[in-house]
């Protein structure tokens, strides 16, 4: 009862909502890069919101379902096909056994999430199923997935699904994303920036360069200058912290970030914009919009409320659907 990787993708891994409570020991929180897409993948099929999901990039793994399963695919649109039939993202799908899931075309976004009903039987480390590559712990043997790996399902029932079926509800995702416009707040060392660089930050576009990964997105664009050069002793940083590197370029810390840092923290991506940022591909451009702290709080709370409503609606539809069967 599980799925088999029949062709490996690039750095595909099991992730959940992160490993918290250990950052004072230098252990990064990790977790899904796009928390909204990962949450919605679980929501659509009635899972616990923090259930570990499979995070994939393009070209993504090809997957054989060795047993039937209810799944959802969210996040990026990589032209998913099951047994050669195009399937919809953001909608629950009943998959018969021996079906093959392939991702054919990079259409939009950078990270796709796959959830299965009741989740994957992953190994937890320090209370989280997220994969920590550095320490080789959590997720699937603490590593990215390879050909012939088998991910077992928690749900061991035979679901008796004969035909590929889309269930009749879908999540509307547009409201959660702002494409390449990223909201940020000023950081503790924002005032160290030259006035002209403060302006540059919001008037220029910045490219996500090819040294970007789950630890951080390195940006490439107009050089930003500091008016005062102050040495900072290291202190805590977080998912979304924008630091200015000695080469006058920015790095945005992502899910697998170091827990502390000493480079000037010139800004912080609003939590509500992190999913949008996670979905930008290497080589693409972003632009920054400055928001106040209160706006950032309000936007995130609104997003969470929308997620809550979606969850209620999905749970209702699930109950109705399986009652009528």
């Amino acid at each position: 009862m599980g799925l088999r990787i029949i062709k490996s993708g690039i750095a595909d891994s099991i992730q959940d909502m992160g490993r918290y409570g250990y950052q004072h020991l230098g252990i990064p929180p990790g977790g899904a890069m796009d928390r909204i897409a990962a949450t919605v993948a679980n929501t659509l099929i009635g899972n616990r919101l923090a259930e570990p999901v499979l995070e994939m990039h393009f070209p993504a793994a090809s997957i054989l379902f060795e047993s039937s399963m209810m799944i959802a695919i969210t996040g990026a649109d990589f032209g998913a096909e099951i047994n050669g039939i195009e399937v919809l993202i953001n909608q629950p799908i009943l998959v018969p056994s021996n079906a093959e899931l392939r991702f054919k075309k990079h259409k939009k976004g950078a990270k796709v999430y796959l959830s299965v009903e009741e989740g994957f039987a992953t190994s937890k480390w320090l209370n989280s199923g997220s994969t920590n590559f550095q320490l080789h712990k959590g997720g699937y043997e603490g590593r990215t997935l390879c050909k012939n790996d088998i991910l077992h399902f928690n749900n061991q029932e035979d679901l008796e699904i004969d035909t590929l079926t889309h269930l009749p509800w879908r999540a509307s995702m547009a409201e959660f994303y702002t494409d390449n416009r990223i909201d940020f707040m000023v950081g503790a060392e924002y005032s160290f920036l030259e006035k002209i660089s403060q302006t540059s930050m919001v008037t220029n576009q910045f490219k996500i360069n090819n040294q970007s990964n789950r630890m951080g997105y390195r940006l490439e664009g107009q050089a930003l200058l500091l008016s005062s050069k102050k040495e900072c002793l290291s202190s805590a940083v977080s998912f979304g912290t924008i630091q200015l590197l000695p080469n006058a370029q920015m790095i945005v810390l992502m899910a697998d970030h170091q827990t502390t840092g000493g480079y000037p923290r010139i800004g912080q991506v609003a939590s509500s914009s992190l999913p949008s940022l996670a979905q930008i591909s290497v080589g693409d451009f972003i632009s920054f919009d400055l928001v106040t702290h209160d706006e950032a709080e309000a936007d995130f709370l609104q997003q969470q409320q929308n997620l809550q409503q979606l969850q209620n609606a999905c749970n209702f539809r699930l109950q109705e659907y399986f009652k009528n069967e």
Binding site: Y22, P29, S234, S235, E297, L301
Partner: peptide
């Protein structure tokens, strides 16, 4: 979620939704 001491600072990483519930009419 996390309490992170450093040389001359200490940081809290928190769940905004849950803090907001404790915060009443204040922002988190």
């Amino acid at each position: 979620l996390d309490i992170i001491p450093a040389y001359h600072s200490i940081s809290l990483i928190y769940d905004l939704m849950k803090i907001k519930k404790l915060a009443g009419s204040y922002t988190a």
